[in-house]
């Protein structure tokens, strides 16, 4: 058979519209704050495309969305969510409440049930009642409000650590005491940093930079945030909920 003669062989070609861009995201809800974090490495296979591609985005003054999976889909999805939130603002002259954003994301994801956005979403922020909240989604819109959630390449490394440190799984409280339902902000930030340094150490797709968004409820004091290096305020008003971002380098060895 002539190798140049391909006409005699049936050939199949397939365009694959998806890829996986690595990275990990994580969110933890406090009593009256919320932390949403993600690394900034974007890769495809063994190739690092960029060391700074944000995966965590401010939506409103009390909502932050982290997207992980197929970066192109993620960016497009965030763009569309932001657009819907802007329309809401024009129609109602206020920001959409967090629980409503969560439902909006569900309908937007499920609308693409048969050609999904290949992304795992984690939405964090402050609820109308002032409580910290985290909503996690699968690519087709199943969602749940939780206290903490990790997603992405290092989910399997981080989630069991969080089970242990946030939910106190496999730990018994000392006699006459009980485990706290929510942890204070400095401890949550320490756990987030530990989670990402751990994931960076053991997972090749995690590393370079760390972005931690902190959303504080109305009237919440800075709770030790002042002294933190690399802190930047993202909120538009100073009398409502406030958003800060902390940027860090991740271990290089």
């Amino acid at each position: 058979m002539n190798p140049m003669n391909t006409a005699s062989h049936p050939q199949q070609r397939q365009f694959n519209p998806y890829t996986e861009n690595g990275g990990t995201i994580l969110a933890i809800a406090g009593l009256d704050f919320s932390v949403i974090a993600g690394d900034t490495r974007q890769s495809e296979g063994y190739n690092i495309q960029t060391r700074y591609a944000p995966k965590v985005f401010r939506l409103t003054d009390r909502a932050v969305l982290a997207v992980n999976g197929f970066a192109a889909d993620g960016n497009m999805f965030v763009k569309k969510v932001k657009q819907r939130l802007e329309w809401y603002r024009h129609a109602h002259a206020k920001d959409m409440p967090l629980h409503a954003i969560a439902r909006l994301i569900q309908t937007m994801l499920y609308a693409r049930r048969f050609f999904p956005y290949y992304v795992y979403n984690i939405l964090g922020g402050i609820e109308d009642d002032g409580s910290g909240a985290v909503y996690s989604f699968d690519p087709v819109g199943s969602y749940e409000r939780e206290t903490c959630r990790a997603a992405g390449a290092a989910q399997s490394l981080v989630q069991p650590f969080l089970d242990n440190q946030i939910y106190f799984k496999n730990q018994q409280p000392a006699l006459g005491t009980s485990h706290p339902a929510h942890l204070p902000l400095p401890q949550v930030l320490r756990l987030v940093i530990d989670s990402f340094t751990g994931a960076t150490e053991r997972h090749i797709e995690v590393g370079d930079g760390l972005e931690m968004f902190v959303v504080l409820a109305k009237g919440h004091d800075l709770a030790g945030l002042e002294g933190i290096a690399g802190l930047q305020e993202m909120s538009t008003k100073s009398d409502g909920e406030r958003i800060f971002v902390i940027r860090r380098e991740l271990k290089k060895d």
């Binding site: 290092a154 399997s156 490394l157 069991p160 650590f161 530990d194 751990g198 053991r202």
Partner: peptide, 11 residues
């Protein structure tokens, strides 16, 4: 093993 790596790295 992956999960153990993650938790051990933290603890």
């Amino acid at each position: 093993s992956e999960k153990l790596f993650g938790v051990a790295e933290g603890l």
